[in-house]
């Protein structure tokens, strides 16, 4: 099986967000960057599918700055075979531009499966995988939390409000992965050593500016100062009164 996995370098979710002087972006100083957690599910799934098939290739593709080589190495250490860095200083604010660059790269090879995370935990765009699928004309199932593949037929499950959708689709296909699909492995020391020797191709790219322009990045509005109503069961009466009379939610 020939599988491509698109991965993004994102700030760790514990990061304290400091807004840069331009008022429009994250101040990256001191920020720890990681492989997007949803993309870990995608990498893991690719590795398992290749292992089950007994043959094939897992390639990881990342659009990002030079430092994203580190993110690619993480996926290689998990077991991916090779990496491609589509190198650009800035990731476009418009996800359609990201999708175009990634689609152009994927287009040069024929894949059985192309995997994405359900969403990137920095921009929450929740769409690059779907946009790429549309650009490539491939079937796409999003937010997959369970997957069965047999030959060129696939069955996936995705959570919806109040239930689970069971979806049939043909391969080749684009899938975006959700939590629950698998438990991503940690790179073992051996994997980390091996990753250093795996091929990592760097290709400079120039994404378009797109039609979404960042006007400002601001801290979220402070929630109104809360209050401790009291301690123990004795405070419940007052809590209910406040919820009724002050918050008016009961």
């Amino acid at each position: 099986m020939k599988i491509a996995v698109c991965i993004k370098r994102v700030p760790d979710s514990e990061t304290r967000v400091k807004i840069a002087a331009d008022g429009k972006s994250l101040d990256a100083a001191g920020v720890k960057f990681v492989l997007n957690p949803y993309d870990e599910f995608a990498v893991e799934e690719a590795l398992r599918r290749k292992e089950t098939a007994g043959a094939g290739e897992v390639a990881v593709i990342c659009l990002g700055p030079a430092a994203a080589q580190e993110t690619i190495r993480t996926a290689l250490a998990m077991g991916a075979d090779r990496g491609v860095l589509l190198q650009a200083d800035k990731i476009p604010a418009d996800p359609f531009e990201t999708a175009k660059v990634i689609a152009a790269e994927l287009n040069s090879t024929s894949w059985d499966l192309i995997l994405f995370g359900r969403m990137a935990i920095d921009d929450y765009n929740t769409q690059v995988g779907t946009l790429v699928a549309e650009l490539l004309g491939l079937p796409c199932v999003t937010a997959v939390s369970h997957l069965d593949l047999e030959g060129t037929k696939g069955v996936a499950e995705r959570e919806i409000e109040g239930g689970i959708e069971v979806v049939d689709f043909p391969l080749p296909a684009v899938l975006t992965t959700d939590k629950g699909l698998n438990e991503p492995r940690y790179p073992a020391l051996k994997g980390i050593m091996a990753a250093k020797k795996k091929p990592l191709e760097v290709k400079p790219v120039q994404p378009g500016v797109g039609a979404l322009e960042v006007a400002a990045l601001t801290p979220p509005p402070e929630r109104k100062e809360g209050k401790i109503v009291g301690e123990g069961a004795g405070a419940v009466g007052e809590l209910v009164r406040l919820l009724r009379e002050e918050a008016k939610v009961l």
């Binding site: 990061t15 935990i121 039609a211 322009e213 006007a215 400002a216 990045l217 979220p220």
Partner: peptide, 18 residues
Amino acid sequence: TRPVYAGKALLKVKVAAQ
């Protein structure tokens, strides 16, 4: 306006797309 970075910031975006 959309929450980003786990809700730790709000992104204000001008959408010129047609």
